[in-house]
């Protein structure tokens, strides 16, 4: 699963894209929904936890936390930006 990162999320992760394993050999739970993916990423990057307001898109469509995700989906994390 490919994740595109924008704004401060890109700065926190330190890269414009991120790959999340879709089959687990470690027995760890694989995220199945947008909400689970957020939790999964926050465990790896605690700084992401600070972002109270972050839009997520699945295959170029805005997605709510309960929506399911699959291994072939392209996900984008889009925190708000404010500069002018």
């Amino acid at each position: 699963m490919t994740i595109l990162l924008f704004g401060i999320a890109k700065d926190i992760v330190g890269s414009p894209t991120l790959s999340v394993p879709t089959s687990s050999i470690t027995g760890k739970k694989i995220p199945n929904t947008v909400g689970e993916l957020k939790t999964f990423l926050s465990n790896t990057y605690p700084e992401l936890n600070k972002l109270s307001s972050m839009a997520v898109a699945v295959n170029h469509n805005y997605a709510e936390d309960h929506e399911t995700i699959n291994s072939y989906d392209e996900i984008a994390l889009i925190p708000p930006v404010s500069g002018g």
Binding site: G7, I8, D11, K50, L51, S52, S53, A55, Y62, P79, P80, V81, S82, G83, G84
Partner: peptide
């Protein structure tokens, strides 16, 4: 607000003064 329902806190997101552009 359909994209970002609520305003983030002041600590969350840096602006151009802090972050650069």
């Amino acid at each position: 607000r359909c994209l970002y329902p609520n305003m983030p806190s002041s600590e969350e997101i840096p602006n151009c003064d802090e972050n650069g552009v």
